[in-house]
Amino acid sequence: MLSLTLTSPATTRRLGRVLAGLLEPPCLVTIEGDLGTGKTTLVREILRARGVRGAVTSPSFTLAQSYRGSGGVVLHHLDLYRLSRGADADLFAWDDYLGGGAITFVEWPAAGSEALPPADVRLLLRHRTVRSREAEVHAAEALEACVAEALRKLGMAVERPAGERR
């Protein structure tokens, strides 16, 4: 686990660019956090960095939006907010959005916890002050190390709790 403080929306976007450079399809990324913690901001920056042009808006209403990035990589952006109150998530067409060489981002993943395979990357965002957020990145050891190194090169302080180091 990596933990870091995002001191502004700009640092949230910086984390997005770092992650974008390290994600390899097929890949499932879940993003947890309350309303207003910057989940969509983070995903938008990753999509931009992967070459998605045009508007990247919140998929809360449509539940899923699909994009094509550079190199033809398919990127799905899901938001299960509207399913988050015990809806019958079994009915959602998960297979359309998982695997198949795509990178899939899922906001509010709790409603899909039964249907979703374990995430390759789990991102947690928490409110700290009006502008700043606490972030956690959970991923495989090697990927976490790469993310930490890339963030430190950008001058961001990253903590890796000793107990978590394998």
Binding site: L63, Y81, R82, S84, R85, L91, F92
Partner: peptide
């Protein structure tokens, strides 16, 4: 009852 629209429903 679901707090939103469930697509398949």
């Amino acid at each position: 009852q679901f707090g939103g629209v469930v697509p398949e429903v």
